[in-house]
Design a protein around this nucleic acid. Sequence first.
DNA 1: TAGACTAATGCAATAAAGTCGCAAATAACA
DNA 2: TGTTATTTGCGACTTTATTGCATTAGTCTA
Lengths: 141, 141
Amino acid sequence: MNLDLTLSSLQDKGHRITKVRKEVVKIFSQSSQPLSANQVEKMLSQVNVTANKATIYRELQFLLTNRYLTEVYLHPNEVSYESSELKHHHHLVCDICGSIDNVTNCLVSKLEEDVLKKKGFQIERHMLEFYGTCSRCLKQT
Amino acid sequence: MNLDLTLSSLQDKGHRITKVRKEVVKIFSQSSQPLSANQVEKMLSQVNVTANKATIYRELQFLLTNRYLTEVYLHPNEVSYESSELKHHHHLVCDICGSIDNVTNCLVSKLEEDVLKKKGFQIERHMLEFYGTCSRCLKQT
DNA sequence: TAGACTAATGCAATAAAGTCGCAAATAACA
DNA sequence: TGTTATTTGCGACTTTATTGCATTAGTCTA
């Protein structure tokens, strides 16, 4: 799903396409990295769109509610977001440099079936995050 | 590893066994659920141990640094902790009632080997959390 | 294009989670 | 029991996030 399609589908639901909304959706449609509210604020100012913190938080909540964004918890006290339209993936978080890489193969679905069978818990989604040392940092030690 | 063993190993490293420390370690050694700082505070007061918020945060950091506790991120803006000594497991978080159950079988290790081979990223740990509807809540709908 | 309607925004106050410096208290050990 | 260094409480402060309200500005229609 591309940028314009996302925006017009929001518009179809009666929501307005404002400067901030347009730019935030654009930022996430182009980012391969999860972004926090602060990072979004910085990226907005880089394209000369100033928005109040409250507006940014509200916009992120809005896009989350409308299922365009997904929450990611990688670090304490910092919620990040990424486009729900990204191919299902997991993160490789480097403890040393903080870099974030993605893994797209996922063996979890089989586990999910087992859980439903054994526990009766119906899984809607999962988060799988990896922490360790990226190849670049491994070389430097 | 039991309660007394944990405490005496901390003591061996030159740390003191205070009322708060003893009680916090005890709480985690008996809990199958991850606990936030606030929850720890409540559980402390239930056994008539009052401790300042700052003290609790410091104690949690201390136990984290000393690898007795592990961080868990299940919800935005709330870090929880659990004993590192629990058998490796993942969480089933119910979106409706908030209950937390554990799964102990883990298919992730194979994936980890693949990642190291393909990406050169050395995984030290991972977090896998599931969100959905628990069996009890499923029945009530 | 002007005007009406309502979503979205900015601002300011507030809440909640967490941190830090410093003086006082207390565990550990001789 | 006294000494010493760790731990604690207190209070101030920081960061992240939320909310009410008045204003602004998209969107739709005439």
